[in-house]
Design a protein around this nucleic acid. Structure first.
Length: 269
DNA sequence: ATGGTAGCACGGCTA
């Protein structure tokens, strides 16, 4: 089973590019981020006419996540549990099954966190974007503990807005104080990894230079001035099934590309 | 320090 993640940055603008990628990569399942659409306005036919089923968790204008799948999606959960007051659409879960077994999938769009606003004592300003990012990651950690307790293969993938290590940025010094790379962000990510996850792309593609995002500005892609912020995390049951993975960098050179590119992993399932 | 680009939606926020 080929599972993938793609931050499409707007379904209304990305229809043709998304179709080209679905046709060429033919993932069995893909989680999408930044659909920037309500559920009602999502152009479902674009997906369903290819034989994919679709589950969306959208909102107007910003954020929004979805799952497209060739297999039926069961037990769908919309929204990261643990805070009823959070209205941002950044999390969706589902289960897919084959003859070989079942897989729980999480698709996530982790908060960016910029601008970083700090009190004089260095603590994030309450109510600010950076405080929201860290609180969201703590809530995510609690939800993942619940999912790990299911003792079944689990893939948690999406746009994490986290540069895990210096080798995951072309110019790490430019990101030192950024919400994507500053120490508290990386610590929160390491806490999640320490629950027992494998970073699939790092396992398959070791070493520097493997990026998933290039800014639209200043010719970042042409200069390969990128960062690796989209990730596929696998629990131990899923990591045992990992056969291959890749970053589909060529989509960034296509017509009207997203600023992110798709990533995928092949599981023996 | 600024401005560089893009999406949604048509003003200003988000990235």
């Amino acid at each position: 089973m080929k599972i993938a993640s793609f931050n499409i940055n707007g379904i209304k603008a990305r229809g043709p590019a998304l179709e080209r990628w679905l046709d060429s990569a033919s993932p069995d399942l893909a989680v999408l981020q930044e659909i920037k659409s309500t559920d009602e306005n999502f152009p479902r036919a674009l997906i369903e006419d290819k034989g994919y089923t679709l589950e969306t968790h959208g909102q107007k204008g910003f954020n929004g996540v979805a799952i497209v799948s060739k297999l039926p999606l069961e037990d769908v959960i919309r929204g990261l549990p643990g805070d009823e007051s959070d209205t941002q659409a950044r999390w969706i879960e589902a289960t897919v099954s084959t003859q070989k077994g079942a897989l729980r999938i999480v698709g996530l769009y982790l908060p960016n966190g910029n601008p970083v606003e700090l009190e004089s004592d260095g603590q994030p300003v309450a109510g600010g974007k950076y405080a929201y990012k860290l609180a969201w990651m703590a809530r995510m950690e609690r939800r993942l503990q619940e999912l790990l307790a299911l003792e079944m293969p689990l893939a948690v993938m999406g746009d994490y807005n986290i540069i895990p290590q210096a080798e995951d940025a072309a110019r790490p010094d430019a990101w030192r104080e950024d919400a994507l790379f500053r120490l508290p962000s990386r610590k929160a990510f390491r806490r999640i990894m320490a629950l027992g996850f494998t970073d699939a792309l790092r396992a398959c593609r070791q070493g520097p230079g493997h990026y998933t995002f290039w800014d639209y500005q200043a010719g970042a892609f042409e200069r390969n001035d990128g960062i690796r912020i989209d990730h596929v995390l696998l629990n131990a049951y899923a990591a045992d099934l990992l056969q291959d993975c890749q970053i589909d960098s060529e989509t960034r050179a296509g017509e009207k590309p997203s600023y992110h590119v798709p990533i995928w992993a092949e599981l023996a399932l």
